[in-house]
Nucleic acid binder design. Structure first.
Lengths: 199, 199
DNA sequence: CCGTTTGACATACCGGTGGTATGCGAATAG
DNA sequence: CTATTCGCATACCACCGGTATGTCAAACGG
């Protein structure tokens, strides 16, 4: 009995779970958490409510799982963009720019930035954000303080200010549609970041 | 028939309406929009659902009215704080600081910053915010650009970045509880604002 | 190979929710 | 004094999130 092919059972389970997550993400993004019913989600996934509640404890739990995946994806994109640079300062700037780009996708927005805090509560949302992307921001700022690139100061308030600024900017850019706004925002953010450097 | 005392009728109507708004605001703030039912609201107000739907079209409409009042109050506080200063630059700083102070009240937060965008959608929430407080921020920045205090640049992206930064900061400060965080945040925000000044 | 068990779902059902249609009684108008 | 308006209560509905139970094939032990 080698467990080489412990197979069809767990495979099917995972397939169903992924389908639920996929359709849930799509519908949450399209119409928002409050406006989508479990009946719609399970219908789109081709299963029933029984299947959904077999995989997730509640509608909120499904949303939480969707959000976690999304944040992980964004976090990886940010880390990848930052990792392509050598200088600590360049890593910060690249990471911030990539974050805005990644979260400007309209689908992602509603889940990550709008419904997330409302559905899970701001505290839990913050913890999840911290675990995925805000942590990288804090680490980058800490490194820069240690290197003396930016003035010595508590990094937590700074991280929150910057995180909030980028979130709101991404939200705005998604609705503006004007490509010039993206460039202007990047420029403005760059100026704000530059303010941190020791002169 | 002078309409001097067109009286008890409209008075009672307004009394009921205000009671609904008061209890609605309290419950929305305490447990959040999704977790409070209309039954609870009308029970707390001492009326029935018939009364609520006579005054408001829907649960969302009641929330919208509550949010509008709240934003107006915050907007007035910000304008008052700014009006106490003469210099344009001081007005901006005072207004920003007052905004953070005003929106750090835990009750206000959930309605204004968390549930607001999720319930009404980010677009409508932005329009309402624009009408109450973000407009003042834009105007202050425009004035400062005209006066040459800060570098010539599009004010819209800047306003969004700052607005988002302050929103997130207020959210964070409400949960941190540490008074030092407030001071640190003000200092950090001050440094970011200083970055805008022409050297 | 076969009975038994497990587990991944489907089905049936429930209390409660936002929303609506209607009824009613007092304040107002004429 | 009658008619009408209107602020609100009552009764009711479709639907939603959540639960309890049933079902049938895959996994397993012998």
């Amino acid at each position: 009995m080698p467990p080489d092919q412990h197979g069809t059972r767990a495979q099917q389970r995972e397939r169903t779970r992924q389908t639920l997550l996929r359709e849930g993400r799509r519908l949450f993004a399209e119409v928002g958490y409050g406006a989508v019913s479990l009946a719609e989600i399970v219908a789109a996934a081709g299963v029933t409510k029984g299947a959904l509640y077999h995989h997730f404890d509640s509608k909120t739990a499904l949303f939480r799982a969707v959000l976690r995946d999304l944040q992980q994806e964004v976090g990886e994109r940010v880390m990848e963009a930052a990792g392509a640079r050598d200088d600590s300062w360049d890593q910060l700037v690249a990471g911030c720019q990539e974050f805005i780009t990644a979260t400007t996708a309209p689908d992602t927005q509603r889940i990550m930035l709008v419904d997330g805090p409302a559905v899970l509560g701001w505290t839990e949302w913050r913890e999840m954000d911290e675990a995925s992307s805000a942590r990288h921001l804090k680490e980058a700022l800490t490194t820069l303080v240690e290197e003396g690139v930016i003035a010595a100061q508590p990094v937590a308030p700074l991280a929150h200010l910057l995180s909030g600024a980028m979130n709101e900017a991404a939200l705005w850019l998604a609705t503006s549609g004007d490509p010039a706004d993206l460039a202007d925002t990047r420029a403005a953010l760059g100026r704000l970041l530059d303010a941190l450097r020791v002169g």
